Simulated scan of single mutants.
Amino acid sequence: MRASEQSWPMAADLYGELQLEARPPTRRRWRDYLPGVLVTAIAALAAAWLSDHYAAPIVLMGLLIGLALSFLSQDKRTHAGLDLLSQTALRIGIVLVGARITAAQFVELGPLPFALLLLIMLAVIVVTVASARLFAQDRHAALLAGGATAICGASAALALYSLIGEKRVDQARFTLTLVGITVASALAMTLYPVLAREFGLSDAQAGFLIGASIHDVAQAIGGGFSYSANAGEIATIVKLTRVALLAPMLMLVALWLGRGSGRPDGEARRIPLRLPWFIMGFLAIAAVNSLFAFPDALQKGAGSAAQGLLLLAIVATAMKARLALLLDQGWRCFVPIIIATGTSFLLSLAAAVSL
């Protein structure tokens, strides 16, 4: 399928995630969601059982089971449910995490982590693009990989591709980048919490490392909470800061490309500066919790609901991964993603240790 044939509302709102259906219908019946929701729920229950019986992180179990069941996404009947859970469940879960966040945590972090985060994001993009020539890779494909890694995974890749355009990066390379980002996020969520423990990082340091270096939102937050509750809260703050910086970063990319879009007519693409609703909801709940502390029972209930929704989102996202594409390409195609991922991790680790 050509990029011009796809529906691009995901890129237009800048914060949508990759959908299995390029042209979803405007209206659906509840039964349309049922197959995807059921297989995701069963996989999530299996992850919960394994976590309970083998003392393994529940989010990690959900990720691995989801990847193992990724072949189910080839059935179109599962598409609506998987899209729903990978997007809506994640965003509602993020809002509910706000019930565990207070303004004191933002103040405790201070301005330094956010300044370092911005430098890391810029450095990842610059290093990835600069190294493209060493491995005979196109600089625009490297920009796509570096930007998606630095900002927020699939969302950033979709938005960047709308700027770069099909003439600079073809549809096959774009799809490959999305798959590579998904796999890299899955591996990072598996490895980074373990490496953080091996390095003896504190909860705050581990939360910054995970939130600053893992690409996709679900895996970043899930990796933080698999380390500890405190690390998960900090990882959420750091990761959502990266998401909020997507629009300014896109403006810089547009200036660098010298045009506003990849459209043939050269018409400038409008980049809205508004925050997505789930970040606004997260900040609103955190603000209320700072002014009027929620009761413990409410905080625990919101935390449990957020964990359940996050688990469903991670399972659904993993099931949507098109792993078969990885076998069809040479290793050089993944060099930009590998460089961007490695640079992001090393810089984030150095920044975390310095905090």
Rank of each mutant, 00 (worst) to 15 (best):
A302C: 12
R139F: 09
R31C: 05
L67N: 05
L201R: 00
A43H: 00
D216M: 13
A235W: 04
A318S: 15
P24K: 10
Q219G: 04
W8E: 01
Q299S: 12
R2E: 13
L240H: 04
T175V: 12
I337T: 10
G223E: 03
L250A: 04
A321G: 02
D265R: 09
T182G: 14
I237Y: 07
Q87L: 06
H140V: 08
A218S: 14
S344V: 07
S4K: 07
S226H: 12
D13Q: 13
L252R: 06
I101A: 04
G93D: 04
S304N: 12
L116F: 06
G98C: 05
E21H: 11
F71K: 06
S290E: 09
V169M: 01
L134Q: 06
S162M: 09
R274N: 14
A186M: 05
L347T: 04
L20F: 10
G180E: 08
S86N: 10
L67G: 08
A268Y: 01
P336I: 02
L178Q: 00
M10P: 01
D83V: 14
L14M: 12
Y227I: 15
Q19A: 15
W8Y: 07
A247K: 05
A302Y: 07
L349M: 05
L112H: 13
G281L: 05
F225L: 08
R322Y: 03
A247L: 14
R173L: 07
E198Y: 15
E21P: 00
I221Q: 00
L311W: 14
M1V: 10
E267Q: 12
L240I: 13
A43I: 12
T343H: 02
A218I: 15
D265P: 00
L64D: 06
G224I: 06
G266C: 05
T343I: 09
A286I: 13
M1S: 06
L275E: 00
F135S: 07
M121Q: 07
L96K: 04
L255W: 12
L112V: 15
A46G: 14
L310Q: 05
L112W: 13
A316V: 12
A159L: 03
D52N: 13
I234N: 04
G258I: 10
P276N: 03
I181N: 09
A56D: 06
W30H: 03
L60Q: 15
S304M: 13
A41W: 02
S228Y: 08
L327H: 09
Q74M: 11
D296R: 12
R197F: 13
T102N: 01
Q299P: 02
A313V: 14
V288D: 02
Y227L: 10
A306D: 04
L82Q: 03
V169P: 01
G342S: 12
I337F: 01
L38I: 14
